[in-house]
Design a protein around this nucleic acid. Structure first.
Lengths: 358, 358
DNA sequence: TGACACAATGCAATCGTTTGCATACCCTAC
DNA sequence: GTAGGGTATGCAAACGATTGCATTGTGTCA
C-alpha cells in the first residue's frame, strides 16, 4: 500500500487530527478522476458529468463532510468569496448597524466580510487597500469616502468592485447607497418652520464629506424654497461630525450675539455638543433653543431632552449596499446606480415652538 | 521568445491591467531561482542566502512592488494571517470598542479580521465556525461564549487557537480576557451601602453567561461580607441583557410589594429598562429609587438621569484579547491564562441617599 | 592533493482546485 | 463498414509560494 497519511474514510472515532478531506479523497473513493469530482461539485459544470455518477459523487462528498478549500480554489480562480468593509470608526453608532446588516447579507450569499476600521490605525487607507487587494478580495464596501477620494479612484482604476455606503463621491461613476439628505433637511427645516421658528441657525459638517456637503446645500435650497431668510452669520460648517465640534460651533454662534431660536444640525453628535454648550450657559432646550439632529443614533430618545432627529434606514443601507456589491461582483458591467433611501423625521422633546410664539 | 503574457518589468505606463508581480518575476529579473527569492523574502530563512544577493533581491522586490500572495502562501503553509471575531450583536454598544481595538491590534501584527455577527444570522454558530475553519483561519476571538459552550469545545477539540473575550466558559482550559465582575459588584454594592441603602434589589442577567453567573454570585458573596441582609424576593435574574428584560424584571419587583430603595443591575441595558418601569409608574430616579448599571455604555452619561455604572475597559479588553491570541497562535503550547481587568465605578446622577435617610 | 565540511543555490514536489485539451466510447447515418 | 458527431471522462498544467533534498562551489586541513 502506498503511503497513506490520512484516514479519509471511516475516520469516525479515530483520535487523529482528522484533516479535512479533499477532492482527491472523494475521487479515490468514487474511483474517478479528481477533475470529475471538481466538475460535479461546481454547479456550473455539473451537467458535463453523467447524472448517476454526479449523484454518487455528491453523496460521497456529503458523507465525508467535504468542504471546498477556498484558498486553493481562490488561488486558481481569483475568486475568494471575500469582501472588505472599510469604516472610519466602529464606535460611531452610525456604523454598527450598517456593518452588521451588510455582513449578514454577505454571509447569506456565502461571502465573508473582512473588517477594516481606518480610524484606529497607523497604516494609511491606501496601505490597507493594498493589503486587501493582495488577498484577492472580490469587492469592497466603503463607508469612508470623502467627496474626492483617492482611495475610491484607486479601486475604480484597478477594477476592484466597490460600493459606497452612507457617503458617496463627487464624480458619479461609482455605485452607492446613501441617505436622501435633501429630503432629511427639508423635513427638519419644515418642522422648525411649522413650529413657528424664523431665526434658525445651522451647524453643518465637513464639506469634504458628501453628507456635510449635501446637507449644507440642501439647507440653502430649502430655505429659499420656503422663503426663509437665513442669517449668514448663523450658518456654519463644523470641522468634524463630533460632539466637541458641535459644542465649539454653537459657542461660536452664541458669542456672535445674533438672535436665534432653533439650531438645525447635520448630525446627532453635533446636536449633543449643542446640548453641552447650552447647558454650560444655563440655557434650556427646547425652551430657549430648539435643536434637531440627524441620524437617530441609538439612545438619543433617552437623552435629556430626547432628540428630535432624522432616522436613517441604517439596516437597509447595509443590506442594500451588500446586495448591490454582490450584483456588481457577479457582473462588473452592471451600470453604477446610486440608491437613496428616505429618512424619517422623529419628533421628540428637543424641539418646541419658540418662546416668543403666540 | 516563449509566451510572456505579462509585463513585469518596465510596465510603468502600460494601459494593461498590471497583474501583481510574483516571486517568479523577481527571480527572472535577479537571475536566480524562485526558491531563492522565497528564502530571501522570508525573514526566517533569509540567512541561508548570501547577503549581497539577498539585498539585491529585496531591492528588486521593492521596485516591482512585490506583495506575497497570501492565498498561495496559505495554501502551502496553512498559515493565513487571518483570524475570526465572533460577536453576538454588533449593535450592542459593548462590542464595537472591543472589536475595533482587537482588529487594530491584529492589523498591526499583519493579520486581518473576519467579522461574524451571530445574532443577525440564519446559520448556526457551528456552521459559521466550519466556514471559518475551511478558510484555514489562524485563530478565533469569541465574544459569544456561554458558560457551557459547545462551540468553544469544538474549537478546542479541533485545535483552533481560541481566546474568549468579555465572557468565558466554566471549564478552565481556554484563555480569556474578561472584566473583573466580582470587583465590579463589590464597588457598586459598597457605593449603595455607603449612601445609606439597606433594602437593595438586584436584577441580574442570564445564568447561562459567565457574566450573569459571576455577577449574581458576587452579589451574594459581597452582601454576606458586608453583613447586608438580602431579601430573596428582591433578587432576580433576567432572561436577557436587554432593556425589555430589565423593564419586566423591575415591574415584577414593584408588583411584589416588598420595599426597596435601590436596584443594583448587572448591565446598563437592564438599568435603562428600569428607568422605563419607574417612569411608567411615576416613580423618580434617584429620588424614589437609586439605580446602578454595569458596562458604562456610550452616552449613558447623557441620559435622564445620567447612569451610575461600572466602566469596563473595553478597549483594553480587545487589545489584550488580540495580543493573547497572537501569543497562542505563535506558540500553541502557551498556558491558557485568564486576564481579568479591573472596572471603575462611575458615580452619576442615578444614585443618591434613600429618601428616608437622615 | 585529496577528503571533507559547509555555505549557497537549484530542483522539484507539494498544498487543493480548476480547466483546456486529449481520449475513449457509443451511436447514427451514409 | 467507416466517417462523423456527440458525450463522458481522464490528463496534466496551471495558480504562487514553500521546503526537503540534491548539487555545486569554496575553503580547510591533514
Amino acid at each position: 500500500m502506498p503511503l497513506c497519511n490520512r484516514a479519509p474514510i471511516d475516520g469516525g472515532d479515530e483520535k487523529t487530527v482528522k484533516t479535512r478531506s479533499n477532492i482527491k479523497d472523494i475521487a479515490r473513493i468514487a474511483g474517478v478522476h479528481p477533475s470529475t469530482v471538481s466538475r460535479v461539485l461546481n454547479p456550473a459544470t455539473r451537467s458535463m458529468v453523467s447524472e448517476a455518477l454526479a449523484e454518487q459523487v455528491l453523496r460521497i462528498a456529503n458523507e465525508v463532510g467535504y468542504r471546498r478549500n477556498p484558498l486553493a480554489s481562490g488561488l486558481r480562480t481569483r475568486k475568494t468569496f471575500t469582501v472588505g468593509i472599510m469604516i472610519p470608526d466602529l464606535t460611531n453608532p452610525v456604523f454598527p448597524p450598517i456593518v452588521r446588516s451588510a455582513e449578514g447579507t454577505l454571509e447569506d450569499a456565502g461571502y465573508i466580510a473582512i473588517l477594516a476600521d481606518t480610524g484606529s490605525r497607523e497604516h494609511g487607507e491606501g496601505e490597507i487597500i493594498e493589503n486587501l487587494r493582495a488577498r484577492d478580495i472580490d469587492g469592497l464596501i466603503l463607508a469612508t469616502a470623502t467627496r474626492r477620494d483617492p482611495v475610491v479612484d484607486a479601486c475604480v482604476e484597478q477594477g476592484i468592485p466597490v460600493v459606497l455606503v452612507n457617503r458617496t463621491v463627487s464624480r458619479h461613476h461609482v455605485p452607492a447607497v446613501v441617505n436622501d439628505d435633501e429630503l432629511g433637511i427639508e423635513l427638519a427645516l419644515a418642522h422648525l418652520v411649522a413650529l413657528g421658528h424664523t431665526r434658525i441657525a445651522y451647524i453643518g459638517g465637513p464639506q469634504s464629506t458628501s453628507t456635510g456637503y449635501a446637507r449644507y446645500h440642501a439647507l440653502l435650497e430649502n430655505a429659499k424654497k420656503l422663503g426663509l431668510e437665513l442669517d449668514d452669520a448663523l450658518v456654519i460648517n463644523a470641522t468634524a461630525f463630533s460632539e466637541a465640534a458641535g459644542e465649539d460651533a454653537l459657542n461660536g454662534l452664541l458669542d456672535a450675539g445674533r438672535p436665534f431660536t432653533a439650531v438645525l444640525t447635520a448630525n446627532d453628535l453635533l446636536a449633543l455638543g449643542c446640548y453641552d454648550a447650552l447647558g454650560a450657559r444655563g440655557l434650556r432646550c427646547p425652551q430657549d433653543v430648539s435643536i434637531t439632529g440627524f441620524n437617530d443614533m441609538p439612545y438619543v430618545d433617552r437623552m435629556n431632552p430626547p432628540l428630535t432627529t432624522l432616522r436613517i434606514a441604517h439596516d437597509a443601507l447595509g443590506v442594500k449596499a451588500a446586495e448591490l456589491l454582490l450584483r456588481v461582483i457577479e457582473d462588473p458591467a452592471v451600470p453604477a446606480e446610486e440608491l437613496r433611501l428616505a429618512p424619517e423625521l422623529i419628533v421628540r422633546g428637543s424641539t418646541a415652538p419658540p418662546a416668543d410664539a403666540p
